[in-house]
């Protein structure tokens, strides 16, 4: 599985990271290096093995349905690079 610059640009688009063409070339090289090294996992026999999602070996706790949070618009908006009153503001989105 070798990545070409076009695939790198598609992945960059999915990740919302701008890459210019020269960067895409370079990234393709680096990523191929890493992915090539990762290919060693193909040696491992994983037949019948259940995937392990995380290190915590327990079931999920459930919390009670009570309102314990919110009501802090100033704190929630306080770090926003652009806000309009009680809203976050972004360039107009056309649907």
């Amino acid at each position: 599985m070798s990545l070409d610059p076009a695939t790198v640009r598609r992945i960059a688009r999915l990740a919302r990271i701008h890459v210019d063409p020269a960067e895409a070339e370079q990234l393709a090289g680096e990523m191929n290096g890493i992915l090539g090294w990762i290919e060693q996992l193909n040696e491992v026999d994983v037949d019948g093995i259940d995937p392990l999602t995380g290190a915590a070996q327990m079931a999920m706790r459930l919390r009670a349905d009570t309102v314990t949070d919110g009501g802090i618009p100033e704190l929630v908006l306080g770090n926003a690079p652009d806000r309009a009153g009680a809203f976050y503001a972004v360039p107009k989105v056309v649907e």
């Binding site: 919302r16 990271i17 929630v76 770090n79 926003a80 690079p81 360039p91 107009k92 056309v94």
Partner: peptide, 16 residues
């Protein structure tokens, strides 16, 4: 919502 922003023509460009 927080952190550094680099403006863009549209939202996608802002993100990227």
């Amino acid at each position: 919502r927080f952190g550094r922003r680099v403006e863009g023509e549209d939202l996608t460009e802002l993100y990227e």
